[in-house]
């Protein structure tokens, strides 16, 4: 039976525990709004726990973020969309549950990568398409992926990502022809990650009980945050993450 607990290492004043009572519709909604992030874990059981919460951004007029309006629908409350939230085990254990590799799409449309951020599992692929009449390119030069491919109008390119970089080492995608085009691909070796929706919400389910590092990254805002959490068996904890320009990395 679930009991009311507090995280031993509170992340902020709103950290608290709720009963695990999520309507299926809520779950479907959260899964559907996340871009590429797998919220449904493999092998979820009654012993596993859940972390859910909201990422918010506190603006500082002395350190303005010019593009915040694209990621924050309500500046007053600051719910931050397109942030990646993921756990990192304190004891490293790779997830070896068999699964079919997935392919997600990133389009080059209106001289932008759409979506600008995806989160995938190692072994998954990204299918890049070009809906513009102009020539584009997809280029990455990172530790886990290096490629440089021209994509003609209406053309496409598929790239597989066999290595995981986790939240700390995303693949930064650019177009050699157009310097302002950018995207990020986060590749994980486990299923416990999510991308915040337009209300800043995330949910990580199917977590084996234990201690974790809970990490958040928002590459467009250059924001990073990490805290330790403990997930009790069969329980859901709420961890709200509040970031500010102090978290620029």
């Amino acid at each position: 039976m679930c009991s009311s607990l507090r995280s031993r290492l509170p992340l902020n004043p709103r950290t608290h525990v709720k009963r695990r009572q999520f309507a299926i519709l809520q779950l479907v909604f959260l899964v559907s709004v996340a871009r590429g992030g797998s919220l449904l874990p493999a092998g979820e059981s009654g012993d596993t726990g859940t972390i859910e919460g909201t990422v918010t951004y506190r603006a500082d007029s002395a350190r303005p973020w010019r593009y915040s309006r694209h990621y924050i629908r309500r500046p007053g409350s600051g719910e931050l969309s397109e942030a990646v939230v993921a756990i990192r085990r304190l004891r490293s254990e790779k997830d070896t549950t068999p699964r079919e590799p997935q392919t997600v799409n990133i389009d080059q449309k209106d001289f932008q990568f759409v979506p600008e951020l995806v989160a995938i599992r190692a072994g998954d692929s990204v299918h890049f398409t070009n809906s513009d009449d102009s020539i584009h390119n997809v280029r990455a030069s990172t530790r886990i992926a290096t490629f440089n491919v021209t994509v003609p109008p209406r053309g496409s390119h598929t790239e597989r990502f066999p290595k995981a970089g986790g939240i700390r080492d995303p693949v930064h995608i650019g177009c050699v022809f157009h310097s302002s085009m950018r995207a990020w691909i986060f590749v994980f070796d486990h299923p416990h990650f999510a991308v915040t929706d337009v209300m800043g919400r995330f949910r990580l389910t199917g977590l084996p009980p234990g201690q974790y590092e809970l990490e958040m990254a928002h590459p467009a805002g250059e924001l990073r945050r990490m805290s330790k959490v403990e997930v009790p068996a069969g329980q859901s904890i709420t961890v709200d993450i509040s970031v500010s320009p102090d978290d620029k990395r």
Binding site: R66, Y67, H70, S179, S180
Partner: peptide
């Protein structure tokens, strides 16, 4: 569409 760095942010 949204703007991004290395490009004029008209708004």
């Amino acid at each position: 569409p949204r703007s991004s760095p290395e490009s004029l942010d008209w708004e």
